[in-house]
Design a protein around this nucleic acid. Structure first.
Lengths: 161, 161
DNA sequence: ACTTGACCGTTCACATGTGTACAATGACCG
DNA sequence: CGGTCATTGTACACATGTGAACGGTCAAGT
């Protein structure tokens, strides 16, 4: 269904660019909601699962990632990571470990509980993601990825800083 | 640039579906940040501008929209609208007006200040949106809109609720 | 008229995001 | 060595989002 009908708008969009932009926002947020519902049974959010997966698949030599590394991989402000790790530490999913040689960083590592949760959730999560993306055939999926890359690329180049 | 490089990931994505999903999230959030920077000079956020535009272009016969109508057009929880309107009322952009005949609703209307702000910002905002979407030719834009519609459509149908 | 149920706005606790500022630490250069 | 600058985590105020619960109001059926 067209976005206009979904939102119940009385007047049409003025420009395809604006419709596409709002479509991006709403699609991302609706998908996020769906995944959050799916994950609620496991007591985590999509952001927390994303962080767990990063620790699992992207960990460095010392078995973890610093908060700054995590913030870069999640494209969020590093200030944000502090409270996120606080919550996940309270849930027993991750631990802050000092890094010998640099007392500025705290390396974040998965706890056994965190690993267990990943093992329990991962398969179903991948299936859910596949289901969500199922309306797009492989060809469209590749096309979508390419277009999103192009959009973010445009944000990086044009306009200084 | 591919998402993997932008995030600095050491390992590739396991599935195109997952890459597309994270691409959607990150593209939406990066665009939102860009627009927020653009709007900061005017003292509002992208969410607030969106609400102003809804009031301007989608208002009903009585010249405004109720909070529930706004929440539906913005695809957010109605609980969220209360504090949003509180802030915008404090800024003098909108007003809560009682609706004769139904004491449950408060109709939200633009104030003269709100109208002035729209007049001041609208043109530049449309230009900014066009710039952001510029990497995609018209053909791709239509394709993107179609794919996003299909994804949201898939969320609505499959699964009860 | 009265119950019953739907609807609307509000409030609460919470999660996530921003920008700013600060203290501690590390790195580097003269 | 010592000053300077960058990096890291944290704290704060704020904006936005959720779900749950509550009270007031309307509408509809008995």
């Amino acid at each position: 269904m067209a976005l206009r009908d979904e939102l119940g708008l009385r007047a049409p969009f003025h420009a395809p660019a604006h419709e596409a932009l709002l479509g991006l926002y709403h699609t991302a947020s609706q998908i996020k909601k769906r995944i959050d519902v799916f994950l609620r049974a496991h007591g985590i959010t999509d952001v927390q699962l994303n962080l767990l997966l990063l620790l699992h698949y992207q960990a460095g030599r010392d078995g973890g990632l610093t908060q700054v590394e995590l913030s870069r991989m999640m494209l969020v402000n590093r200030a944000n990571i502090t409270s996120l790790i606080d919550r996940m530490e309270r849930s027993g999913l991750v631990a802050r470990v000092g890094r010998p040689g640099d007392r500025r960083c705290r390396v974040i590592e998965l706890t056994p509980g965190g690993r267990r949760l990943i093992a329990k959730v991962e398969r179903d999560y991948a299936r859910e993601v596949a289901r969500i993306m199922a309306p797009l055939p492989a060809r469209d999926l590749a096309s979508l990825i390419r277009m999103l890359d192009a959009l973010r690329g445009g944000l990086r180049t044009r306009r200084r800083r």
